[in-house]
Simulated scan of single mutants.
Amino acid sequence: MAAPTRRLGMATTYIICDLQEKFRSAIHEFPKVVSTTQKLLKASQILDIPVIATTQLRGKLGETCPELGLDAPDGVATKCHADKSAFSMWVPEVQKAFKALGDGKRECVVVGIESHICVTQTTLDLLKEGHKVYVIADGVSSCNAQEVPIALARLRAEGAIITTSESLLYETMGDAAIGEFKQMSGLVKEYSKSTKDNLTSLCSWKL
C-alpha cells in the first residue's frame, strides 16, 4: 500500500494579515482571532508550512502581537514579514516571497484583520493571481462585527473557500496515517476549548 500523503500539499501557505498590538482594543473579539492564529502557527511548524505576514503602517500602528512569536528566536520564522500602506497584502515584498516559494499556484490560508478591508482586498488579489484561497472564519474579524459575514459572503461569491481552522487542519492532513498526525491530534486537543469559544464568538452568524 502506498504511503499516505497530505490532502493539501506543500504549496500551502499561511497568510497573516495585520495582527498588530494597536488593534487589540478596536477589533471585535481580537483575542479570539489571535488564538486561532496561534493554533495555525503551531500547525505550520508541525507540517512545515511557510508563513507570510504583514503589518499596516508599523511606525504608527505598532508591531505584530508578541504572543504570535513571529520571527522571534523561539517562535515562527516567516518567509516575509512586510510593512505596508496598501490595504491588500499583495505588495512587492509579498510577491517576491511567493516567487521564492516557487512558480506554481498556491493554497493560501488567510487570517487577520479587517475582514472587509485588508482581508477582502488580499483575498481578491490572490484569487486574481490564480491562487486557491481559504479564509478562516474563526480567524478573521473587524472593528464592527456586522462587517464580517457580509465580507465573507462576498469572498465566497468571488471564489474563496470559507472554512474553519479545525476543518482546514484536518483537510490539510487528509489521512490519520500521516507521520504528523499524533502531533496534530495533540494540537487539536490543546485548543479544543478555545476553538469552541472562538467559533461561538466569531461565527455565530449564518452565511
Rank of each mutant, 00 (worst) to 15 (best):
T163F: 05
V94C: 06
P50Q: 00
G179Q: 10
R156A: 12
R106K: 15
C108L: 13
R6L: 08
V33N: 00
D175V: 09
C17N: 10
L47C: 03
M1Y: 14
E21H: 08
F87G: 04
F87W: 14
Q38I: 05
Q121I: 09
Q38Y: 09
P50K: 02
E180L: 04
K132N: 12
S142E: 04
W90P: 00
H131A: 11
I161F: 10
R106Q: 11
Q38N: 07
V140G: 05
H81F: 07
V110P: 07
A82Q: 09
K79C: 10
G112L: 02
K60H: 10
P73L: 03
R6M: 08
A177S: 14
C118R: 01
A77W: 14
R6A: 04
T123Y: 03
T5W: 15
Q20C: 02
D18A: 03
K32W: 14
D197I: 10
L126G: 06
A137Q: 14
V76C: 05
E67I: 00
E63W: 06
T172A: 06
A43V: 01
A43W: 03
G75P: 07
C143D: 14
V33S: 00
L155K: 00
C118V: 06
R154G: 05
K206P: 03
M1N: 13
P4E: 01
E166H: 11
G59V: 09
C143L: 10
M1K: 10
K60V: 06
A137T: 08
E129T: 12
V34A: 02
I15E: 06
E21R: 08
T172L: 08
T120C: 08
V91R: 01
R154Q: 07
V109A: 00
D83L: 00
L101G: 01
V140N: 07
T12H: 08
L127I: 08
G75W: 02
P50L: 00
A3H: 15
A137R: 12
G130Q: 13
A43H: 00
L70R: 03
R106E: 12
C65D: 13
A176G: 12
H116D: 04
S25M: 11
Q121H: 14
A151M: 02
H116C: 04
M184E: 09
E21I: 08
S85G: 09
V91H: 07
S25W: 15
A11K: 12
S185R: 07
G75K: 04
L127E: 09
A43Y: 04
T164N: 13
G159D: 15
W205G: 08
T13R: 09
D48R: 10
G75I: 02
